[in-house]
Structure formats: structure tokens, C-alpha cells
């Protein structure tokens, strides 16, 4: 017989942290539930306290401060795509979130849940890392900030301490001629898990030279990989064929994938460079169009 599970839906951060840190048992945070409720049903997780964070305004809103967007960790994919200013500033991150499952799933799935669940194939995570997002985290010791790339540590594992909640992600202000893109490869067009995902964010100067870039790839290692060598291949170039070629080679070199039914190691390594090059081309065209 399963033990009883208490359910709470606090309205404030302080109340949520107090509940989570005050409980002597298995606690879980509930966002959209599209990972957690399946794990609970399968008996893989049996929380004795479930804290629904969707009534806390800091987690469920998108706001803007001096050009920098703050994306609540419990904002769902549909909400992101329906927020015009956000979707326009961060098309890559928005399209990554909008790749998650069906419309039914997108109405629930959050970026915070996608990150904290720590699947190596999570779609919004490479886009979030490429964007340079910083997570603000609150726990019993107070508030701290952490780079998104340091949160998921391996399949199903993250670096959060007991009682900690990811509140929101802060994205850097958008510079002129700057844009992002995310692409994934799946065996069919909808409803599958990435074989490879690639997120790219880049900034050009007035002459079309790339002055900043971040390249992050998913599903090719135990967690999403930020590939500095790939970014270095773009920076200082016009992102011409040869720079894209070098960037793709650096991406392939960084992969340490597994073989599974969705793709072999060799296949993932090859496709990662193709996805990264195509995502870079999309980001580049978007950056050229923005002022």
C-alpha cells in the first residue's frame, strides 16, 4: 500500500520553500506534471508531499526589465509562444519549447520541468543554455543564481539541494543583429524524442561579422553540452561555409553519445554537425533581419 501523499498549492515562494524544507519525507515539486505524473504512476517516484508551484506568480509569468526577459520556471510552452514580444526576441527557445509533445502536452509542459527532470534529450535545455540563461533558485538558505548548464548533471539527476525551487530564468538583453534557433532530429515529424538537438544563439556586428556565439547540443551525452570550440569557430567569421564546416566538426568532436533504438553512436555524431550547421544558418538569417 502506498503511503499517503499530501498535496499543497502555496501562493507564495516563502510558503513553498517552508513546506518543502519542513517535510520529513519524499517531497516533489509539481509543475506541468508531464514527466512527474508518469513517474508516479509507474511507481518510480512516491512522494509523500507534492507542492504545486503553479499558483506562485514569480514562476508563472514572463516579464521584461531593461530589455532582459525573465521567464518563470513554471511558464508552459503555449504561454511562451503566445507571448509575442518574448517569442519574437527568443524564437529559438520558443520553438524548442513548442517541440515538446502534442498541443495537450505543450499546454502543461514547462521549461523548469524540462530542465529539472534532466533528460539528456530535453528539447528546451540546449536552447536555454545557448541563450545564456541564468536560473534564479530559492531554497532554505535563501536565493542564489546558477548557469543553466550547471543544473542538469546526468540522466534524471540535477544539482538542486533539498527544498530548492527554480524560480525563473533571466535571459540577456537582445543586442542588435542577434538571434537564436533550435533544431532537433527525430525519426518522424511529431511526438518523438530527439536523436540530436542543437541550439545556437549568435550576435553579428554591423559588418555581419559574428562577435558572440553559443552552441549547445542535446541527446549526444549524459546532459546537454555547451561546445565552446564550436562557438569559437563562428566568432570572428561571417559564418561562411568554411566557418560552419569547422563549427560542425567541433560539435561532432564533442559528442559522446550512446547507441539506442533511435540512433547509433556514429549516426548521432554525424547528424549533430548537420543539425548544428542548419540551426546556425537559421539563427544567422534571423540575426541579419533584426536591428
Amino acid at each position: 500500500m502506498m503511503s499517503e501523499m499530501r498535496f499543497e498549492s502555496p501562493q507564495t515562494l516563502e510558503a513553498a520553500v517552508a513546506l518543502l524544507s519542513g517535510h520529513n519525507g519524499i517531497t516533489k515539486i509539481l509543475a506541468g506534471g508531464t514527466d512527474l505524473l508518469i513517474q508516479m504512476r509507474g511507481g518510480r517516484v512516491e512522494p509523500t508531499l507534492l507542492v504545486d508551484v503553479k499558483s506562485i506568480p514569480e514562476l508563472t509569468s514572463i516579464s521584461q526589465n531593461n530589455g532582459a526577459f525573465r521567464l518563470g520556471a513554471a511558464v508552459n510552452a503555449m504561454q511562451m509562444s503566445e507571448h509575442e514580444a518574448f517569442a519574437q526576441s527568443w524564437p529559438g527557445l520558443t520553438e524548442a519549447a513548442m517541440l515538446i509533445g502534442s498541443y495537450q502536452i505543450k499546454s502543461r509542459a514547462t521549461v523548469g520541468g524540462n530542465l529539472c527532470n534532466a533528460s539528456p534529450a530535453a528539447d528546451s535545455v540546449p536552447a536555454l543554455i545557448a541563450a545564456g540563461a541564468i536560473a534564479t533558485i530559492m531554497g532554505p538558505q535563501g536565493i542564489r543564481e546558477q548557469k543553466v548548464e550547471d543544473i542538469a548533471t546526468g540522466p534524471g539527476k540535477n544539482s538542486l539541494a533539498k527544498g530548492e525551487i527554480v524560480l525563473y530564468f533571466t535571459l540577456p538583453p537582445r543586442a542588435p543583429h542577434s538571434a537564436d534557433a533550435y533544431l532537433r532530429f527525430i525519426p518522424r515529424t511529431e511526438m518523438d524524442i530527439a536523436v540530436v538537438g542543437a541550439g545556437i544563439n549568435l550576435t553579428l556586428n554591423d559588418k555581419g561579422i559574428c562577435i558572440e556565439a553559443r552552441v549547445c547540443i542535446g541527446a549526444v551525452a549524459e546532459k546537454a553540452l555547451l561546445v565552446k570550440e564550436a562557438a569559437a569557430a563562428l566568432i570572428g567569421s561571417t559564418c561562411d561555409e568554411s566557418a560552419l564546416e569547422k563549427m560542425g566538426a567541433a560539435v561532432s568532436a564533442a559528442c559522446r553519445p550512446i547507441d539506442d533504438k533511435r540512433g547509433t553512436k556514429a549516426y548521432r555524431i554525424k547528424v549533430s554537425s548537420v543539425m548544428a550547421r542548419r540551426a546556425a544558418t537559421i539563427a544567422l538569417n534571423r540575426a541579419r533581419r533584426t536591428h
Binding site: 498535496f7 498549492s9 506534471g33 508531464t34 505524473l37 504512476r41 504545486d52 502534442s102 495537450q104 499546454s107
Partner: peptide
Amino acid sequence: CGTGDCGACTVTVDSKMVCSCLFLGVE
């Protein structure tokens, strides 16, 4: 399916469509 894959359980909650198999009664 009970796992969000098939959509047979689709309902709307505050006009948004969700899988009722991935939504708690208490929510």
C-alpha cells in the same frame, strides 16, 4: 494509454486542452 501519448482523455481546463490522465483531480 494513461501516459499522455494518445489524447483519448483530452478535456479542456480553463479553455486549454490537456490530457486528463496527466492532470491531478486536486489540481
